[in-house]
Design a protein around this nucleic acid. Structure first.
Lengths: 129, 129
DNA sequence: AAAGATATACGAATCGTTTCGTAGAAGTCA
DNA sequence: TGACTTCTACGAAACGATTCGTATATCTTT
């Protein structure tokens, strides 16, 4: 339930590319860092044992698939992170993340909508749901 | 520059309480989890070696102090976290953190101000800087 | 069929973090 | 002074994560 950094890397690939073989995942990972094939293999085997990945035998190959969702995992990691790094204050995190990001107007607008959702009383009415 | 989880715990205490002895830090930590005195001692010694903490001898005691700032450290951790968990998308993180937090109206208002700052063009004018 | 490439399985080395036991120095108290 | 407590220092065990070497099986190619 709490993937390590390496495991997260692999999950990222599987989330992005869908079910994949070890080689495909490894190919992808080696683009950004030095990692041997058997290292990726071992990692994915362990993740399979842990129940993070499913595995289907396709002839000689094994095809792996993420068993936990991206958003769900992100939410979990986020909760943990807020606790450890921001002492539980999600707002502090939000402010700091936002302050240092170069958000596009579109993104800000989306965010604006979300805020209006959260706070139907206050602020100028914008659109009803 | 990249404190571990345990180190972060200790930093939190020092940030909150200011310069402290090992015992004071340990006392605080033991309130929330099982940890021996010498464990805390060793950790703080290592952090001192790493340059995370300064140390002043006060008679028989050592008084430790955080050498890195809270916000600065949080920013650093946050950047890293956005990269690894949210593939660099700070906005995705913000939206998700916000969506799951129960923010008070005051907090939302603060956030609103920040957004208006960031996006002077769009939205209703609110206040000039 | 033989050689070579490519798959999985698995044991083990390595590395960083965390934890604690033990020793010795220094202060406190009866 | 002698027993206790309370510091720091330090070595090393324990643990988890990461990495890779090697063995073996299975294809592919000539």
């Amino acid at each position: 339930m709490k993937p390590t950094e390496s495991e997260l890397e692999i999950l990222q690939v599987l989330w992005a590319k869908g079910p994949s073989t070890v080689r495909q995942v490894n190919e992808h990972l080696s683009q950004t860092r030095d990692i041997g094939y058997t290292t990726t293999l071992k990692l994915m085997q362990i993740m399979h044992e842990k129940g993070l990945l499913s595995r289907t035998e396709e002839g000689r190959y094994h095809i792996y698939q993420a068993l936990i969702g991206e958003e769900e995992t992100q939410q979990h990691l986020l909760d943990r992170f807020v606790d450890t790094a921001f002492r539980g204050s999600a707002m502090k995190l939000v402010m700091q993340a936002l302050g240092n990001s170069k958000a596009t107007p579109q993104e800000l607008e989306e965010l604006q909508k979300l805020i209006n959702h959260l706070n139907p009383e206050n602020n100028e009415p914008d659109e009803r749901l």
